[in-house]
C-alpha cells in the first residue's frame, strides 16, 4: 500500500540521523532516574513528523499493543533507503517507537534485516525501565519493520 503521507515527511524525519541510535543510547544511559528517562523518551516521540490523516486507517494499524499504533513506510527511489513513520494515541508508545526509528529509519533494507534490536534495547535500558506490558508495541513495531524490509 502506498502511504498518503508526502515523501518529504519521510525524508525530513531526523530520527536515525539525529540522534543516531548510538547517541540516543548514550544520552539515555546518562540519565539518573526513571523520570528523566521517561521524559526523554516521550520528548523524542514529538520529533516524529506527522502522518497524513488518510494514513490513520485500519490497514496501517499495528496489532499487539494496548495503544493504537499506525505505521507507514517509504522507499526512496534514488538511494534505496527505507523510511518509516508512525503515530500512536499513547505518548509513551510513540516515544518508544521513536527510539526504534533511531535504530532503523533511513537504512538499507538489508541493514534493517541484520541490525539486532534486542541487545541495543537492553543496553539502553528501555526494556528494563519501561513496564513490560508497554514493550509489546516495541516488538510488534520491530516485526513490522523487519517484514517490510524483507520485501525490498
Amino acid at each position: 500500500m502506498i502511504a498518503l503521507t508526502p515523501s518529504e515527511h519521510f525524508l525530513a524525519n531526523p530520527l536515525g540521523v539525529s540522534p543516531t541510535a548510538k547517541l540516543l543510547g548514550q544520552q539515555l544511559a546518562e540519565l539518573p532516574d526513571w523520570e528523566q528517562r521517561y521524559a526523554a523518551v516521550i520528548a523524542l516521540g514529538d520529533h516524529i513528523p506527522p502522518l497524513a490523516e488518510g494514513d490513520k486507517i485500519d490497514a496501517n494499524l499495528l496489532h499487539g499493543c494496548q495503544a493504537t499504533v499506525w505505521v507507514v513506510h517509504h522507499v526512496d527511489p534514488v538511494t534505496g533507503l527505507l523510511y518509516f513513520l508512525c503515530d500512536s494515541d499513547s505518548r509513551i508508545v510513540r516515544g518508544l517507537l521513536a527510539c526504534l526509528l533511531c535504530l532503523y529509519n533511513a537504512q538499507k533494507p538489508a541493514d534493517i534485516l541484520s541490525i539486532q534490536a534486542k541487545p541495543w534495547l537492553e543496553e539502553v535500558g528501555l526494556v528494563r525501565h519501561i513496564a513490560s506490558t508497554r514493550s509489546n508495541g516495541l516488538w510488534a513495531m520491530l516485526g513490522k519493520m523487519k517484514a517490510v524490509a524483507s520485501r525490498y
Binding site: Q66, R91, V93
Partner: peptide, 21 residues
C-alpha cells in the same frame, strides 16, 4: 486526552497499582 495506559504506566513507576484499558 492522555492515553489511560500512559497514566497507568506512570502511576506504576510510583508504586501505585491501578488497572487501565
Amino acid at each position: 486526552d492522555s492515553h489511560p495506559a500512559d497514566v497507568g504506566t506512570l502511576l506504576d513507576r510510583q508504586g501505585i497499582a491501578v488497572r487501565t484499558g
